[in-house]
């Protein structure tokens, strides 16, 4: 029987594959990778493309991922798949948008955070909640 290793494909939002495999094919940024058990530890980025898994018995499964990271340990292969299309300028754009949202929401940006006011307001809200709770308990007892 051929040697196998454990393969996990996970994305931040879900687990995609987990199980033993004889061989894994993936497209790293430096080129195609064919991984067999007892591979040296390796860490690389993946290009958008397919990850092919040859399971025990030669059956193959193909997953398409939009990039990610690949970690190889002698008996464990982990694919950390991205769920979003990543590129430096795309990330940059998203960051700028997030900043703009903050700026829009904030009329005067330089103002100091008002600790006293914040604490007073929060204390009031908590007191309200507690008052409601007490009222309920009293209602239940009567």
């Amino acid at each position: 029987m051929a040697m196998t290793m454990h393969v996990d494909i996970v994305s931040a939002e879900e687990e995609i594959f987990s199980g033993p495999a004889e061989m894994v094919f993936a497209s790293g940024v430096m080129g195609e990778l064919g991984i067999l058990p007892r591979h040296a530890p390796l860490l690389t980025q993946l290009k958008p493309g397919e990850v092919r898994i040859r399971k025990e018995g030669g059956e193959e499964e193909i997953y398409w991922i939009s990039g990610g990271m690949l970690e190889i340990q002698p008996h464990v292969v982990t694919v950390l798949a991205d769920t979003a299309v990543r590129a430096r300028d795309l990330d940059e754009k998203a960051a700028i948008e997030a900043k703009e949202r903050a700026e829009r929401a904030l009329a005067d940006k330089t103002s100091e955070f008002e600790y006293a006011k914040a604490q007073a307001e929060l204390a009031e809200a908590v007191a309200q909640l507690q008052a409601i709770k007490k009222l309920r308990e009293r209602a239940r007892r009567s």
């Binding site: 939002e13 769920t83 979003a84 990330d91 754009k93 998203a94 960051a95 997030a98 903050a102 955070f113």
Partner: peptide, 29 residues
């Protein structure tokens, strides 16, 4: 923002199925 903190990035309306893509920008800042 009402109490005047220095907010540098903001995200809202992620809905019931938040996605990593919605967070990339804010985290990157």
């Amino acid at each position: 923002s009402r109490l005047g903190g220095n907010i540098v990035a903001q995200a809202a309306h992620l809905g019931d199925r938040p996605q990593i893509a919605d967070l990339i920008g804010t985290v990157k800042v």
